[in-house]
């Protein structure tokens, strides 16, 4: 475990540096947006990582409610924490990108509103965790909120198709007559896929690190409770 974390740490740090150099030094300039398009290489990988992080919360929350294994709750908690950071990154990079292309940091369109909602739900998730003293009760309640919170993600993803929004439809997950057809040339697409992979490795690193801390915190609290008795 320790070795895997170390590999992921150095792998993702090197990967982030390489992707940054690739994006800024080697990539051609996008025709209509110009230089600001490069923020896409931070924004889109963060979006995908946020989706995945909260999907992990969803899966392990169900697993906890089913098996009542504390380990599952520790993983869900760790993933929600990392997911919240990436969600904040999505909102911040999106606002900066929006300012340069749309001409505004923020509008209340469906895509942006539902993304902010996701952020607030998982802020509430941690508030809920902090307000409960009993560890098992905390895990039970948080699992329910974790499952409900995840349900916002399909809405976020489909919002650009369901409603009229300022945000453009999906580029990466574009489907044309049943076939996946990302609407960007390969020289812009491959670096995006590479940055996404690196970001996912970085997520996995943070997840494992947080999970280990959670595990030790719970063990410590358990030992303290035993010695006090």
């Amino acid at each position: 475990m320790k070795k895997i974390i170390l590999y992921l740490e150095w792998g993702s740090i090197l990967g982030l540096i390489c992707c940054g150099l690739w994006v800024f030094l080697k990539l051609p300039i996008e025709t209509s947006q110009g230089f600001p398009q490069k923020i896409m290489y931070l924004h889109v990988p963060s979006v995908i990582t946020t989706y995945l992080a909260f999907f992990v919360v969803f899966v392990y929350s169900i697993a906890y409610l089913w098996k009542r294994e504390l380990m599952f709750d520790q993983i869900a908690k760790a993933s929600a924490e990392v997911g919240l950071v990436f969600c904040a990154l999505v909102l911040i990079t999106g606002a900066i990108w929006g300012r340069t292309t749309w001409g505004t940091y923020w509008v209340w369109d469906a895509r942006l509103t539902t993304t902010l909602l996701l952020f607030l739900i998982f802020m509430g998730y941690f508030l809920l965790r902090m307000s409960v003293n009993d560890r098992d009760k905390e895990a039970r309640l948080a699992s329910v909120l974790g499952i409900i919170g995840f349900l916002d993600i399909p809405i976020i993803h489909k919002s650009v198709e369901w409603w009229r929004t300022l945000h453009q439809p999906s580029t990466l997950f574009k489907v044309d007559s049943g076939e996946a057809k990302p609407s960007m040339p390969p020289e812009l697409l491959y670096p995006l896929l590479a940055s996404t992979l690196v970001m996912l490795a970085f997520y996995l690193y943070l997840l494992l690190l947080r999970y280990q801390t959670e595990k030790r915190t719970d063990r410590l609290n358990q030992l303290l409770a035993e010695t006090q008795v």
Partner: peptide
């Protein structure tokens, strides 16, 4: 506000 396309070109 300017909308932009989901199409990226070089």
């Amino acid at each position: 506000l300017v909308k932009h396309s989901e199409e990226y070109t070089v």
